[in-house]
Design a protein around this nucleic acid. Structure first.
Lengths: 248, 248
DNA sequence: CGCGAGGTTGATTTGTGTCAATGCACGTGG
DNA sequence: CCACGTGCATTGACACAAATCAACCTCGCG
């Protein structure tokens, strides 16, 4: 079973064995964290870069009165903070939502990786996909009502889990709490619970004991207006003609 | 009066005269566009990179039923799509909200720019600020009610306009329609109108004929929970110790 | 002078939040 | 092995924010 990080990056660039080895080597320093642990906090100066190997982490921001908005979910294979080391100071926090295994990669290990053309492209790709995802979440929060938005989230999770080989038929793990999902969707936990029932009653999803089941993906997709284009996982189109391969 | 693009990038890196000249030279190809014109549409293959020299543009996404979500505003000095040329296909559109002057820079002009260390850093900085802004918008939409969110938007606009020298005392231009602001905030146009009156009645803002006036910035800031850290405009902290200057 | 885009207002409905109580499963310690 | 506590999920009653629909107003412009 290949490393989820490698597996994910394969979508961004056509890697060779030496690339895979370099990536795996960079991921050797791993930490096991409990649920609810912070990886970096707002205000800190970013140093190492982190990748989730197992479990689920998130990017979030707290308001003074305790409101929390989750701005990204990191599934196995995802980098949490690939590029922010350019900024002097974290403008948000990153933490785990479940028990998790997180790899730490120091900045010049990263530089070694990015010195390799194909890996550089893959990391760029991952960064841009993150941004695309963030934009799609903004669309969801602004324009979709709670059932649409929730259907959309479930679709995205399933597709992303699938990309790293964590799905099993119509099921995939999704072990976060309803409160977490609420903070992600920008609604109350009570409303998440009720919205969930709506979708369950419509026969679109079952989500219990941390496992998400989607009996009919196409129906759920239609319910949430989900289009996977923003995840840029399309393998056929992957190798793009290198007309304007960026050096940066 | 220096070019707004140069002016903006000065916040991201300590530029030298040769850098400024290189940037200005790259911006020579300009187009005048009417309000409501598209610069690039979803599905297209990105080629040139664009920067707004005058006027206001936005990043947006349309849903099948016509709902629109604006995901970013581009003020004078802002790049619209600096990095997405790595992806094969636009997953969103970019268009003008007012009459605007937009510079087109072809990809290898961009490569020439990024070959310069200081400019490279500034462009990276701009990209990361865009992302930070997007995250902040997500927080606004998820956690803040309409008056808070609107106060937050006005604060951000004022600070960003100020950064490129477009403010005049307590005033700055903000010539978009209420419908545009509604699509940006993810609320209805009617609600924007009413929320505006709330803020006006509280004496926090006047916004008419495309001009935004903020009599007391601190009060508005408090109303919207605005903290400018995510804009990373802090000049004092700007030149970061180059411990881990990234090559990418 | 009339038209149209954008802005304003009111009445009503709907979505979502809040508060509070209850239920359920799990782990811990007696 | 059972009693209890705790964290999470579920449910109901009610309040409130925001959407919708529809009308009307205002101003700039052809």
């Amino acid at each position: 079973m290949p490393n989820p990080v490698v597996r994910k990056l394969e979508y961004g660039s056509l890697l060779e064995d030496e690339d895979r080895e370099a990536i795996e080597a960079a991921l050797l320093t791993q930490h096991r964290l409990p649920a609810g642990a912070d990886i970096i906090c707002e205000g800190e100066i970013p140093s190492d870069v982190h990748a989730v190997v197992d479990g689920i982490a998130c990017r979030y921001k707290l308001l003074e009165d305790g409101r929390r908005q989750i701005m990204a979910l990191f599934l196995p294979g995802d980098f949490c903070d690939l590029h922010i080391h350019i900024l002097k100071e974290m403008d948000h926090s990153i933490g785990t939502l479940t028990d998790a295994t997180v790899a730490s990669i120091n900045t010049y290990k990263i530089e070694e990786l990015t010195a390799r053309r194909r890996i550089n492209r893959a990391l760029w790709w991952a960064t841009l996909v993150d941004e695309g995802t963030l934009r799609e979440w903004l669309v969801s929060m602004g324009q979709r009502d709670a059932p649409e938005q929730m259907a959309h989230v479930f679709c995205e999770m399933f597709v992303r889990m699938q990309a790293v080989g964590l799905t099993d038929g119509t099921k995939c793990p999704f072990p976060i709490t309803q409160k977490d999902l609420a903070d992600l969707m920008g609604v109350s936990a009570v409303h998440v619970n009720r919205t969930l029932m709506v979708l369950r009653d419509e026969g679109l999803v079952v989500w219990e004991r941390g496992v998400l089941t989607i009996p009919n993906f196409d129906r759920l997709k239609a319910r949430g207006g989900f289009t996977p284009n923003y995840l840029h996982l399309d393998e056929e189109k992957r190798p793009r003609p290198a007309v304007s391969e960026p050096g940066w």
